[in-house]
Nucleic acid binder design. Structure first.
Length: 283
DNA sequence: AGTTAAACCTGGTTGC
DNA sequence: TGCAACCAGGTTTAAC
């Protein structure tokens, strides 16, 4: 599910509601990728700040409520969230029953924030600060934000130098640019007319420029449409995304290329399916 | 150092 | 219908 557009759609659907809310309860279900890193009860009483995003991670800042008249004051720090492959967040009534895959609940004065994640590749990590571990280590390896103005074609081109890995795998890796998962990496390369098997260091400056533009257009369009809902992604209000029906190549093996009509192909790169048009996309 | 496989889990789909 | 095999939106970790 969650690539950058889905994570950003999720962020936008919870940020305003949760900002300033006070934590009333915390419930942990089955283990996620890593342990929370703090006693859940210690979070109770904290005030939530503004939810931000870095790559596919969400950051929910928590502030100790020193002015709390009664009850615990909470902690200073925050929660680093990752939705993994199957996670989604929902704002629900405090009384709603957790389903079998609801593995983290944050009860607040503004409603219940619930992480549901069947595959449990997701994570909720308590950190003292965004630049303290474990967040610092996890975020340190991330590449540029795709919409960062500092990421120019020249910067991207320079980052590809010396990288022999196929451009599709490089996009997926997130060490140069974050945000594209399997769907949007395939779609962006199709839009840019670049063969996904192309060695990264063979991408010329003009093609790096086209790739960056295509990546931004693809992600921006997905954001407009509320992301992609392949199986069960939805925003925190339960709204499904609509981008998947606009996918040009993803999941369309054997179907005609929307540009030239040739049958689309599927190959496997780094254990992941890649969909592309061998006619329109050149090395 | 850079690249590739294995690992974490569950659930849905496909094929015998 | 039952069951095994395979596939899936991500990222870390270990191994070549």
């Amino acid at each position: 599910m969650p690539e950058l557009p889905e994570v950003e759609v999720t962020r936008r659907s919870i940020a305003a509601r949760l900002h300033g809310a006070r934590v009333l309860s915390v419930r942990c279900g089955k283990p996620l990728r890593w342990p929370l890193g703090i006693a859940p009860q210690a979070l109770v009483g904290s005030r939530l700040g503004e939810t931000t995003r870095r790559g596919k991670y969400l950051w929910l800042p928590l502030q100790r409520d020193a002015a709390a008249a009664a009850g615990p004051a909470g902690v200073d720090g925050g929660l680093l969230l990752h939705l993994g492959m199957s996670g989604s967040l929902a704002l629900q009534d405090a009384a709603s029953e957790p389903g079998p895959h609801a593995h983290f609940d944050l009860g607040t004065t503004q409603g219940l924030l619930r992480l549901t994640d069947p595959r449990r590749f997701g994570a909720v990590l308590w950190c003292r600060a965004l630049d303290a571990d474990p967040a610092a280590t996890l975020l340190a390896r991330l590449g540029a934000e795709p919409f960062d103005a500092a990421l120019t074609p020249r910067v991207l081109h320079a980052a590809l130098r010396g990288r022999k890995v196929a451009i599709k795998s490089l996009l997926l890796g997130g060490q140069v640019v974050v945000g594209a998962g399997n769907i949007y990496a395939c779609e962006a390369l199709f839009r840019a007319g670049i063969d996904p098997r192309t060695r990264s260091d063979r991408i010329s400056l003009p093609r790096a420029e086209r790739l960056l533009a295509a990546l931004r257009e693809t992600l921006a369009r997905a954001l407009e449409l509320g992301g992609s809902t392949l199986r069960d992604f939805s925003d925190a209000h339960g709204m499904a995304g609509a981008f998947q029906s606009e996918a040009q190549v993803y999941g369309r093996e054997g179907q005609p290329c929307p540009r030239c009509g040739a049958p689309l192909r599927r190959i496997v790169q780094a254990q992941r399916s890649t969909y592309f048009c061998a006619v329109c996309q050149r090395r």
